[in-house]
Simulated assay, not measured.
Amino acid sequence: MKYMLLVCGDDTNDASGMAPVEPWVEELGDRRVRLHGHRLALPADAVTVRVRGGEVLRTDGPFAETKEYVAGFDVLECDSLEEAIEAAAKHPVATVGAMEVRPFWEDEDAEGEIRRLDTERTDAARAGDVDRVLACYVPDAQVVENGRHHRGVEELRKAWAVTAPATREVLESGVHVDESIAFGHALVRTGDDLLRVTTGYRNVGPRWLIVHEHVTEATS
């Protein structure tokens, strides 16, 4: 299960004696507990945005004036909440600030959505429907087909304009999902050709779309 670790600093505490964070990052990264994370700029650089009566209200500074503030974040993957708490307790900032551990919302099936997108991509190719195929890509998608580089869906539209209904069969496939991005690999047969397809996906709000695709002939 994935957890968001909010690293909360406290500007009233002396952090001069705090241990460096790098060993914690390296240890949890080696164990594949820490997936990624980053520091954030100070609250003085924050901008708070509200919309009231259709008007956008911008306030320089954090949402709440408090001595504690979110200084960074880490995404952890742990077997239990207790394991995530143990990892948070070892973070050096825990000695001078606070760590908020919060589970990710779990009612989403990102892998299932991506596989449904790939099925739509295959069905559209079989129908020779270029518009349906291109609807599976972001506007600035990049596709490399056997060394030919296409940038954006308009280039793809020209390259695939004469696409006729084609046999497309996915023989093998795998997907790795990491929050808003995902990577897939597949062995695909199109007509007499056997292809290896590596695909990058991005969550663009209500759906996943293809941002990068690399296609090469499979070698035995």
Rank of each mutant, 00 (worst) to 15 (best):
E77R: 14
G17T: 14
V144G: 02
P92C: 07
V7T: 07
A84D: 09
P206R: 12
A182F: 00
T12K: 14
E65A: 15
T219P: 01
R151Y: 11
L42A: 09
V197L: 09
A44C: 08
A44T: 11
E100K: 05
F73Y: 15
L209T: 06
S16P: 10
S173M: 10
V144E: 09
T216I: 03
V49D: 00
L81A: 13
A166M: 13
M18L: 13
N146R: 14
D140N: 15
H214K: 02
R189Q: 13
A135D: 15
S16D: 12
A124N: 04
R102G: 00
C8V: 06
L156V: 07
R168L: 04
V101Y: 06
F63L: 14
W160Q: 07
T190M: 12
L40V: 05
G128S: 12
V130K: 08
P165V: 12
G205T: 13
Y69I: 11
A135M: 08
V25H: 14
S173F: 06
A71K: 03
P20D: 10
H176Q: 08
R115L: 10
H38T: 10
C8T: 02
A89P: 00
A64Y: 09
V188H: 00
A64P: 01
P62A: 05
R31W: 07
R50C: 11
D11G: 02
P139T: 11
R151L: 10
G174P: 01
E55H: 09
D79R: 13
W160G: 03
G9L: 00
F183P: 00
E55V: 13
H185E: 04
L57Y: 05
Y69A: 09
T48D: 10
G9M: 02
S180N: 10
E154L: 06
R157E: 05
A127P: 02
S80A: 12
A166H: 07
G54F: 03
L134P: 09
D131Q: 08
L134M: 08
A124G: 04
E106H: 07
R31C: 02
D30E: 15
T12E: 15
V75I: 15
L40K: 02
R34F: 05
E83N: 10
C8F: 01
H214T: 05
A164F: 04
V51R: 02
V130Y: 03
R39S: 10
E83A: 15
L195G: 01
D192E: 15
H150R: 12
A166K: 06
R31I: 05
Y3A: 00
E108V: 06
L81T: 13
E172C: 09
V215W: 01
E217K: 13
E83F: 00
G29T: 08
D11M: 13
R151H: 13
V144Y: 01
K67S: 15
E213A: 03
T122Y: 01
T66N: 15
R189S: 06
M4T: 06
A64C: 06
W160H: 07
E68Y: 12
D60Y: 03
H212R: 10
R50Q: 14
P103Q: 09
F73T: 06
D74R: 07
H36C: 10
V170K: 01
R32N: 14
V153C: 08
L35C: 04
D10L: 05
G97N: 04
